[in-house]
Write a protein that binds this DNA or RNA. Structure first.
Lengths: 215, 215
DNA sequence: ACGTAAACTTACCCGCCAGTAACGTTACGG
DNA sequence: CCGTAACGTTACTGGCGGGTAAGTTTACGT
């Protein structure tokens, strides 16, 4: 790619190459098992360069986290913004999500699948970025009420729905890899189909007790 | 607990104590960041004992995995078995799951949140245990059709629903920790409320195209 | 052209931790 | 009451990997 003859590359470009490499390695090995050496090699550079540009392994991970969160949030906003009506809005958001994951599997792994094993500083940042994604989805969920007059649904209920959606979508990410032929559109469609009706019930606080057998 | 005066403890008991300690530490630190030293100390024993009884760090992790998978699957089967009808059956399964997680947070973390960062042998075993859980849930989902005459739903659709449910439930696990006062029963209720209706649509292959705005 | 800063390297240090060797100690069976 | 096997320990090694000091090369500005 680009000019193969020139080895020397300006800093901003190298930084991105290093982050690219880091995301792949972090996704494959996990934070602790990933070695800076391997990342450097994949980026076509030696280890001290990584430390010069990104300070530390932790700093490198944070850089990955920030860049990819930015990308995902941007994609979500871009998709949901122009949609008319709550239903199409949510659909657009989900579609944007599945499309993002389909195109950047590694990013999603780094962003979302690193629950344990990290230093306080990283854990804090990770919590923040997850919160950002949840907030974005939460916005989609709450879009209903904005249309209605009543601010009917309490935050807890909206939160519940959001967690359910994010978890379901995350898990379907695995399903996608088992069905590579399925386009994000169909997955989105099925998920909408599955949750759209029930969402309303929960958001309106309609928690009935278990029905007694057959109606 | 038990007899505090006796220090010497028979092997089967120690093994369980070590596994108990390992689950807590693995959950807190993640596989790589966890040190065998810390696990041994928490189990009230010195490091070589761990290697004597469980062979290696990998063997120790596998032992944790197997024991807790066993427990979860047992809980699911015990709950879903005696329930009458598909709806109550699924409800019972979900309730059993949330109850299990509420009582064994660490177990669930070890079982489910260790995607990356493990050796091939562990990864294989982890895949097997996840498969076991998914199969169990899949049974709950498919329970519908068993009642009906037609084996109507193709495996893909049932799989899709299963992944959605497992993912949603997993994510709600986090929601639980933010709302410690919510009993598993209410969480189960809300989730049922949210997905039960839509499940039918997807299982029956009713994937409509996006509705054009307002009906 | 040539000096200088930015890009890059080699070669090292050092702490941490999985895994082990060799050696004490308690209980329980005969 | 004593032997022996099960229970347990202290004290090491070996290597991997994060982090760095010191030096080398290339491009770009003037």
């Amino acid at each position: 790619m680009t000019d193969t003859r020139r080895r020397r590359v300006p800093r901003p470009v190298r930084e991105q190459q290093i982050i690219d490499a880091a995301i792949r390695v972090f996704a494959k090995r996990g934070y602790h098992a990933a070695s800076v050496e391997e990342i450097a090699e994949l980026a076509g550079v030696s280890k001290p360069m990584v430390y010069l540009y990104l300070d530390s392994k932790e700093g490198l991970f944070l850089a990955c986290l920030r860049r990819e969160t930015e990308r995902l949030v941007t994609a979500l906003r871009a998709a949901a913004g122009p949609a008319h009506g709550p239903e199409l809005r949510l659909r657009a958001g989900l579609l944007a999500f599945f499309t993002f994951v389909a195109e950047h599997r590694d990013s999603w792994v780094v962003l979302h699948r690193q629950a344990a094993e990290l230093s306080p500083a990283i854990a804090a940042e990770l919590a923040r970025t997850r919160r950002a994604v949840v907030t974005e989805v939460s916005g989609l969920v709450r879009a209903d009420d904005a249309a209605d007059a009543a601010p009917a649904c309490p935050d807890d209920e909206a939160d519940f729905v959001t967690y359910t959606l994010v978890g379901a979508a995350d898990s379907l990410t695995d399903w996608m890899t088992l069905h590579p032929e399925e386009p994000p559109e169909r997955i989105t469609l099925r998920l909408m189909n599955m949750v759209w009706v029930g969402m309303r019930n929960v958001l309106d606080g309609e928690v009935w007790t278990t029905p007694g057998r057959e109606p």
